[in-house]
Amino acid sequence: MEFLTYFAITIGVFVTMEGVTWLTHKFIMHGATGWYFHEDHHQPGYPHVFEKNDAFFVIFAIPSMLLFWFGTVNGLNWMFFVGLGILLYGTAYFTIHDVLIHRRFKWFDKTENWYLRGLRKAHKIHHKHLGKEDGECFGMLFVPMKYFREARLSTVKK
């Protein structure tokens, strides 16, 4: 029973992080407080290995690390698995956002997977706006279904 509870916590936090990411992206990163750090991410051809936007990685990593610590200091408890859910989402976010979409690393250069192509398409729509206003598609793993349909159709036509 304990395994299932911890597994459910981890998966629940992972799914919840998509909502947290969407809200953070829309209202903080594209808002008055976070645009300073996020703006360089919307500039085409940004020439540096790191962006100011990468500071958000640290912001999300700190609670995860603290939860790992407090979740093990007196024996394994639920906090560890909350931290694990955040870590797993961060890993998925990095892989999708930095590797697949922005190709900061050339690990998955070409994919024919309709789901991954749909994510790329939605993120490209998000980046067509260079300013903080008029943004759309703030999610990372769950985006409007129309992008998946378009990606699936373009894959079938090939």
Rank of each mutant, 00 (worst) to 15 (best):
I125R: 14
K146D: 11
H38F: 02
L153A: 14
H129I: 00
G83H: 04
G12A: 03
A122D: 01
I101S: 06
W22E: 07
W22V: 14
I11L: 14
M65I: 14
R117T: 10
G131S: 13
L119P: 00
W114L: 02
I9Q: 08
P63I: 03
Y36N: 04
K132F: 11
M140N: 12
D109F: 00
T95C: 12
M29S: 09
V73M: 08
A32Y: 09
Y46A: 08
L23F: 13
R149T: 14
E51S: 12
T91A: 15
V99Q: 05
H126K: 11
A61K: 01
V82H: 06
H48D: 13
Y46C: 06
T5F: 10
F70Q: 12
K132N: 11
I9H: 07
A92C: 11
G19W: 02
F7D: 10
R120F: 02
N113L: 05
Q43V: 15
I101F: 10
R120K: 15
F14A: 10
F50C: 10
R149C: 13
V73W: 01
A151V: 01
W78E: 15
R104G: 09
K124R: 13
G118C: 09
V58Y: 01
Y89F: 15
E133R: 00
G71L: 03
G75K: 03
Y36H: 06
A61S: 15
L76C: 07
T24I: 05
F94Y: 14
K124W: 03
E2Q: 15
F94G: 12
I125K: 14
K26F: 05
H25L: 00
F81G: 07
G83T: 03
R117D: 12
K106L: 08
L4S: 13
K158C: 02
P47T: 08
H126V: 09
L87Y: 11
P44H: 06
F56D: 05
M79N: 13
Y147V: 09
G71P: 03
L87T: 15
T16G: 12
I101Q: 06
F70T: 12
K132V: 02
F57Y: 11
T10C: 07
F57P: 04
G75D: 09
K110M: 11
N53Y: 06
E133A: 12
E2C: 07
L76Q: 13
G83C: 01
T95P: 03
K106Y: 03
T155K: 09
R103V: 05
L130F: 12
G139F: 02
N113E: 08
Q43P: 04
K146I: 15
I59Y: 09
T5G: 03
D98K: 06
T91D: 10
Y93L: 13
G45R: 07
L76D: 08
L67E: 10
A8N: 08
T72D: 08
Y46M: 11
F68V: 03
V20P: 09
A55T: 11
G83F: 00
F70R: 11
H97D: 15
K157S: 12
H127R: 05
H129M: 07
L141A: 07
N113Q: 07
N53C: 10
I86M: 14
V73E: 14
H97W: 04
P63R: 06
I11S: 04
L153N: 13
H129W: 05
V15I: 15
V73F: 04
G75F: 02
G34T: 07
H102T: 11
P63D: 09
T95Y: 04
R104H: 07
P144N: 03
D98M: 08
G90K: 02
H42F: 00
L84H: 05
